[in-house]
Design a protein around this nucleic acid. Sequence first.
DNA 1: TTAATATAATAAGTAAAAGGTATTATATTC
DNA 2: GAATATAATACCTTTTACTTATTATATTAA
Lengths: 141, 141
Amino acid sequence: MHSKFGFLSYEISHIIRQRFNKAAEPIGFTHAQWRALVHLSENKNCRQIDLAEILEIKPITLVKQIDLLEESGMVVRNKDMDDRRAYRLSITDKAHTVMEELWKIADAVEIEVLAALSEEERRLMTSLLDRVKNSLATDSS
Amino acid sequence: MHSKFGFLSYEISHIIRQRFNKAAEPIGFTHAQWRALVHLSENKNCRQIDLAEILEIKPITLVKQIDLLEESGMVVRNKDMDDRRAYRLSITDKAHTVMEELWKIADAVEIEVLAALSEEERRLMTSLLDRVKNSLATDSS
DNA sequence: TTAATATAATAAGTAAAAGGTATTATATTC
DNA sequence: GAATATAATACCTTTTACTTATTATATTAA
């Protein structure tokens, strides 16, 4: 019997993204922007190329997300004084307020989607996924 | 502390899809087509609208995937005798052969991605995800 | 038994999220 | 100082999906 982990993780995360996008649409954010914001807030003052690597997307893909986040006043590109090719990304005060709203949405979606599991099971599953993710992060993929 | 399940499941499934797509590209299939094929083989002779519901995509999205799968000789649209609006989808003999190849790729990718976990942990995680998925399937989402 | 409504597939056009390749401006290395 | 590498990005394409509207056929209600 073949494992269905690939399909299951895809299908569940797809539902989470759909529901998040629907709920966050009135505020004007997509799940991809949200993901960039959260990872940036955990890696303050990094360059675009650093954030792209963290997000596991190509730099050119991130450019457009940062464009949108800058337009909506969430992120600022600051010239790097030591390397004039690069920008240092920072999050605005406004972003902190908006992110509180977005976390409410994200948490609510997650609780809804994971309702079938106990809190203990949710923690267990998340920690297993976390180990998988961390083992991949060290790869050169 | 907020849960990261949404990001984790997205990021891991994204890596699985990327690796699958890369490995299956020479044979000419994408992960979306692969997903449709597998779900069709588990729901033989269903209509497009049924398969779309199983895949949790809109019927129009499925049309194009079936177009591609029909072009490559994997799937046949058979006129439904009882409802002349509908097609019944079937999988060709050729598809069975190709699917064996694709399962090899899918299994290999999964083993690679989940290498950090023991077999026991893999089974546990998959069964937790399966419960989540099934609880959502009964929703009217 | 028609008239109104619903359903299955699909055409046309759009969008979100991503990537490939090439370019510009700067850094680094040889 | 010349060759090479790097950070950001312009231009174009791909994958996967959606919205809205249309055609053909079924079903329901009057």
